[in-house]
Nucleic acid binder design. Structure first.
Length: 266
DNA sequence: ATGGCTTGAGTGTCAAGA
């Protein structure tokens, strides 16, 4: 089973790249963030044409999440309990025996801003919800744009970013708490190249200069982490014309998925 | 230098992203 996440920064603009990417990589499940498209305008036909089904929860201009999959989803949920949030940032669904949560964590703007307070409150509700989901689903995968770089090695210039939004202590602590409750950062289960990032600013030729952050993540419950055989960042799409500023992250699980069930191979 | 791109809204120019 191959799981992936990609903040596409407008599905309308990036649709050809997404179709190309799924044709090449054939993920079983692809979580998308920042689709920026209302549900009535979602490009379902093109995605069906590529052999994928889709769940989506979008809004005009901002935010918006979607989950593309090769098999049918069960029990979709588009809202987080305990948080009355008009922003479309969450989509959960079950594939085989794996519960998948697609998340677009708020950006936070700057640590002094009201948006930062919203981000921390959102993360607190997210943590409570994931605790509950873990108790119901031992096979849980949480994928998305977390807008948090967990460690210094996830930041191109830690001294420059220290205390700033995306790398502030309260945000990193919120991320750490998720690991503490039994969710593992799939990327760090394996040896990885130095300067591995998932986002590079559009400005100042940041990608070419390797000035990035690792803020898109795949978290796996212990049971899924044991079945995980690889996790990587695909920075190829960042070289495209009109790229998203984020790169996809991919996790491979030693798990067979079909429409009714999934099992971990011996 | 709170700049530097990109997107969506809407058709001039701003909010928001990270």
């Amino acid at each position: 089973m191959k799981l992936a996440t990609w903040n596409v920064n407008s599905l309308k603009v990036r649709l050809p790249q997404v179709l190309d990417w799924v044709a090449t990589h054939r993920p079983d499940v692809l979580c998308l963030q920042e689709t920026k498209v209302e549900d009535g305008s979602f490009p379902l036909e093109a995605i069906n044409g590529a052999g994928y089904q889709a769940l989506y929860s979008g809004q005009k201009t901002y935010n918006g999440v979607a989950v593309l999959s090769r098999t049918a989803a069960r029990d979709p949920v588009m809202t987080m309990p305990g948080l009355n949030d008009p922003q479309k940032r969450i989509l959960a669904a079950t594939f085989g025996e794996v519960r998948v949560i697609c998340a677009y964590v708020p950006n936070g703007e700057s640590v002094a801003s009201e948006k930062y307070r919203y981000k921390l409150g959102w993360l607190a509700a997210f943590g409570s919800w994931l605790t509950h989901e873990l108790s119901r689903h031992p096979r849980l995968a949480v994928l998305g744009d977390f807008n948090i770089a967990p460690e210094a090695r996830d930041v191109h210039d830690p001294a420059l970013w220290e205390g700033k939004v995306l790398f502030s202590e309260p945000e990193r602590e919120a991320f750490c708490k998720l690991a503490g409750m039994g969710l593992e950062d799939a990327f760090r289960l394996f040896e990885q190249p130095e300067r591995s990032f998932t986002w590079w600013d559009y400005r100042m030729q940041a990608f070419r200069r390797k000035m990035g952050l690792r803020i898109d993540h795949i978290l796996l419950s212990d049971e899924l982490a044991k079945a995980c055989t690889a996790c990587s960042i695909d920075s190829e799409p960042r070289r495209n014309e009109r790229p998203s500023d984020h790169a996809p992250v991919i996790a491979e699980l030693n798990l067979i998925i079909d429409s009714g069930s999934s099992r971990i191979e011996a």
